[in-house]
Amino acid sequence: MAEQDISARLVELLTARGELLASAWVEAVSRTLRGRISLAELDRELHDLYTALVAGIREGGSDWQGEAYAEVRALLSELSRGRARQGFTPTETATSVLACKDILAPTADTPAEDIHAYLQLSKLVDSLALFTLEVYAKTREEIISAQAEQLMELSTPVVKLWDGVVAVPLVGTLDSARTQVVMEKLLQALVDINADQAIIDITGVPAVDTEVAQHLLKTVVAARLMGAECIISGIRPQIAQTIVALGIQFGDIVTKASLADALKHALRNSSTDLSINGGQA
């Protein structure tokens, strides 16, 4: 039997009892989702999809990547993104599509040509389910990277401690990318609020590697080039050991045990500036 004939037969089967089959699909899917999506919403979602799918088969046969399936792919993407955002598992998401096969599942007395039609539908639905999963995975990746970005923003506040003194308290594991962001934000803050004393407090940092230590060093040197002094405070014993073991030279960089000590040092350093500027302010 030619492929067009199979497609034609498939369309026939799907339209003849269209309403019934679509409802069976909705019924099957709603069982797997256990009421986490309202029935009305699911009903609308799958009916739209069903209509688009039948139209797609009629126009484009089994070429699901073709023009005729644009509507199907758009609907699937929407469904998949929604599921990913609402926290459904990949299995639940794929099942929503795969369940579409069962509505035409052959029985003992199914004629041979209808079995061909079923097999074509089955292949088609498999491809569409894979497509759905890909969109699902992509959406999850987008969510993750957006969250990582938010976390980065949250975790690197640059605060003004005093006139002319800014500090950035770092908490959590530092990687190279995050340290670089901190460095840029801190240096920009020096310009923005006209501060010539900067404190990097790493009390909340459990460990540093060579790269991170180098970035911290570079930040201090860059701050100096801009005309500001940078103090590193809150170095834990383990970190001090790491830094020495790695052979990194902290040279003449000012380090203090606590943020309080660092602030004291910074204020003493900038006190002459403060007294002069104080009169004018």
Partner: peptide, 17 residues
């Protein structure tokens, strides 16, 4: 005076202090 942050970062990376 007045070195921009991006310029300072670049100089350090370049190896000039």
């Amino acid at each position: 005076v007045g070195m921009r942050p991006a310029v300072a970062i670049t100089l350090v990376e370049l190896g000039l202090s």
